[in-house]
């Protein structure tokens, strides 16, 4: 099966976005948290609803998690690079209660996952960036070979 992964370069030109994509480039997934109370804030906002002030702290996460919801996209909507089909998943990441990371499910079984399935980080290299995609836990690791 030909596996599609969107190829749409992220907007990174902002301190609220750059650390996420730097971590992704290094094969990791990181989310921002308040250094004072530890509450994760996703998406990052210019202020902190927890009431503390100062910059957020980006924390590396284990890269495992659970599918909260998903949809198999079968029609193209992106202005470019969005050839369907591909499966969007919302992942609740271990070690970061609260946020749901929007990502793409890749590898075996990615066309028909179920809510509650366990997943692990399995990045995809595109021409312009590394996308922190996920694979079903227990599926073969094909990340090293996967490029778009």
């Amino acid at each position: 099966m030909t596996e599609h992964v969107p190829e749409f370069a992220p907007y990174t030109d902002d301190p609220l976005y750059a650390p996420f994509w730097a971590a992704a480039e290094a094969g990791r997934v990181a989310l921002p948290a308040c250094p004072d109370c530890g509450v994760f804030q996703w998406y990052p906002l210019p202020g902190r609803p927890c009431g503390h002030q100062g910059p957020l702290e980006w924390r590396d996460l284990p890269g495992t998690g659970t599918i909260f919801t998903f949809t198999r996209v079968e029609r193209a909507f992106l202005p470019s690079g969005g050839e369907p089909p591909y499966t969007v998943v919302f992942v609740e990441l271990d070690g970061a209660p609260g946020p749901r990371l929007v990502s793409v499910l890749v590898g075996d079984g990615s066309a028909a996952p179920a809510i509650g399935d366990r997943v692990r980080l399995s990045p995809t290299r595109t021409a312009t960036h590394t996308l922190p995609t996920f694979a079903l836990a227990g599926s073969p690791d094909t990340s090293a070979a996967r490029t778009t």
């Binding site: 969107p6 749409f8 992220p10 902002d14 976005y17 909507f77 992106l78 919302f90 960036h129 996308l131």
Partner: peptide, 18 residues
């Protein structure tokens, strides 16, 4: 543009499908 479109999460039908 940073956290959704690169993953193909774009277009109202996709949002409501999730």
């Amino acid at each position: 543009a940073s956290y959704e479109m690169p993953f193909g999460f774009y277009g109202q039908p996709v949002y409501f499908a999730a």
